[in-house]
Design a binder for these strands. Structure first.
Lengths: 151, 151
DNA sequence: CGATATTGCTCAGTATGCTGACTATCAGTA
DNA sequence: TACTGATAGTCAGCATACTGAGCAATATCG
């Protein structure tokens, strides 16, 4: 371990740091003010209408205490609605609004361009390899974080 | 882009999330209370005695506004000392303390074990491939974040 | 030398992400 | 049905990260 900057942990942090910066830049240039986390939540709510917060958190591997704030901000922006579940009075059902749908549609090109930019130093094959290895490492470590993916 | 969870940005976030959790668990089990960020800063200060905050930030790619708090906490724990530079009255020179040196020495096995755990789903060759691809992608995107690496 | 630009650091504000604790509610069982 | 445990959500507190602003000191250049 000659260099601390060569450790997996450091590389993970750097890659995430760049990924977020690229995402915010692309989406910002397109005229939107949405974070990667907010985007993933919004897209998942659209794909799973009426889901509750815990389920949403599991689908994108967020902590349940973090998702509260994310949902607050999405609702504040008018992109989603949060209403009490008729079946479980503890739960809240999440629904995307028309405005949320419109935003999601218009933002998609910027999001996709950001994904390409993040790996712009790699060939297509290298990018695919990277994603495959990341998926494999993540699958093996899924239960190690407080907010694992739940399908 | 069938699944949002398959996008590079999401994989970056997940891998980082697991890396931090593994680091904190290993280091915590060893009896220490140090974050990945604090560890990297401490190790870099030890390797570059008397460096100033901006240089430190550049060496580990932290934002200059973030490093203030990290240094505060390291100093609070007695692991480093921060004193005015005699050459530049704006700058502060950072120095590791004996306590910091001791902590760094005792914590190293846990840190290394954490690095292995992060990629425990991968073969040795796969882990090496992953790190090579991450390094390459990061090198190409270095200037895209507000806190690039500066050597 | 003096005006200007740059640099080192800090601060306020916002957004993740986590720990741990708490309330309200639901589910299973004795 | 009453007790017990689990679950949905929130909150306070702490630690990264970043934006943008500002202050003090240094560097640069006409």
């Amino acid at each position: 371990m000659k260099d601390n900057n060569d450790m997996p942990g450091h590389l993970a942090r750097r890659f995430q740091q760049i990924a977020v910066a690229v995402f915010l830049a692309e989406v910002g240039d397109a005229g939107f003010d949405l974070t990667p986390v907010q985007y993933a939540a919004l897209a998942t709510i659209k794909a799973n209408p009426g889901l509750d917060q815990v389920t949403l958190a599991g689908l994108i591997a967020y902590d349940r205490t973090t998702i509260t704030g994310v949902i607050d901000r999405l609702a504040q922006k008018g992109l989603i609605e949060r209403r009490a579940s008729p079946r479980d009075r503890r739960a809240r059902e999440l629904e995307i609004t028309d405005e949320g749908r419109r935003t999601l549609r218009k933002i998609t090109p910027a999001v996709e361009s950001a994904q390409r930019l993040m790996v712009r130093g790699l060939s297509a094959k290298e990018a695919e390899d990277l994603m495959r290895l990341l998926r494999k490492a993540i699958a093996a470590g899924n239960e190690l974080s407080r907010a694992p993916l739940r399908e």
